[in-house]
Simulated assay, not measured.
Amino acid sequence: MDVNVSDLKNGDKDAFNAVFYSFYSPVYDYLMSKTDNSYFAEEVTQLTFIKVWEKRNQLAVDIDIGAQVFRIAKTVFIDQLRTRYRKKNRPDLVTEEELSEYTDNQLVHNISYKDSYKRLNRILDMLPPARKQVFELSRLSGFSHKEIAEMLQISTKTVENHITKALKQIKPLWNATILIVAIFLQR
């Protein structure tokens, strides 16, 4: 699929239509594999392309458009799951004491998560750009090796090599970070 991302960023509807018709079915199929709910998959797929159009100015010209569409799809999917979860678990039925305890626990969890995420990002920034992109698509976005190969138009063997090399580079740094945190927490 050869779409000029610059044209899409400039509001070219033909470029958007090309992206839409090229990726609608793959995005829908991906979401169906995650939810097994055709209505929800259809809803999230449509929201994905609305978001692609709304956020077209933020698209990167140097990153494959397919990878960007799937990243947006995953973000929209997670947002919709969160929305459904909030609606399902009505906070108006929770006591203030439970809410306070939950909020305190969530705050500690969020701080720990954000700190870990920042450390991971610093480590990932040390990887070569292509290796970092493949690793993030695999480990952070949950795409299969085959999906990544198709998105980036590389072989699955190249994807596997990038991930293997990334893990060899990341593990020692991550383990050292965990050890330092453990020592610090023991004080």
Rank of each mutant, 00 (worst) to 15 (best):
L185K: 13
H162P: 09
K157M: 13
A176T: 12
Q106K: 12
Q186F: 10
E101T: 12
Q58H: 08
Y85G: 10
P128I: 12
T45W: 04
M1R: 06
Y117G: 09
R82H: 10
D92Y: 09
I178E: 06
D104G: 05
I50M: 08
Y102L: 13
T45R: 02
L185R: 13
N17G: 06
I183P: 01
F135G: 00
T156W: 03
D12M: 03
S112K: 12
Y102E: 11
L81C: 08
I123P: 00
P129W: 06
A15Y: 04
R119I: 12
L179Y: 11
D29C: 11
S38A: 15
N17F: 04
D125R: 12
S141Q: 15
A15Q: 09
T48A: 01
T48D: 00
A73R: 01
D115W: 05
E96F: 03
R84P: 00
N10M: 10
I50V: 13
D64R: 10
V94A: 12
K51N: 09
T35M: 02
A60L: 15
K165I: 07
Y85S: 14
D104N: 13
V181T: 14
V61H: 10
R122T: 10
N121G: 10
N161E: 11
A176Y: 07
S6G: 14
N4D: 15
I183H: 13
K13R: 14
Q68N: 05
Y117T: 13
V27N: 02
E43F: 08
S33Y: 06
A182F: 02
V134G: 00
T75H: 08
A166D: 07
D79R: 15
S6P: 04
L47G: 14
N161V: 03
R187M: 15
R122N: 15
Y117A: 14
Q106P: 03
S33N: 13
T35Q: 04
L107W: 08
N105V: 06
W53M: 05
R84K: 14
N161P: 07
K74A: 09
F23Q: 00
S138I: 06
L31Q: 01
Q169F: 09
S141I: 08
W174H: 03
F23Y: 09
I65H: 00
K168I: 02
S100Q: 11
I170L: 01
Y102A: 09
D2K: 15
F40S: 07
R56S: 06
Q133I: 05
Y85L: 14
K51M: 03
S144K: 03
S25Y: 11
N105P: 05
V134I: 10
R122A: 08
A182S: 12
V108D: 14
L140Q: 06
Q106W: 08
T177L: 06
V76H: 00
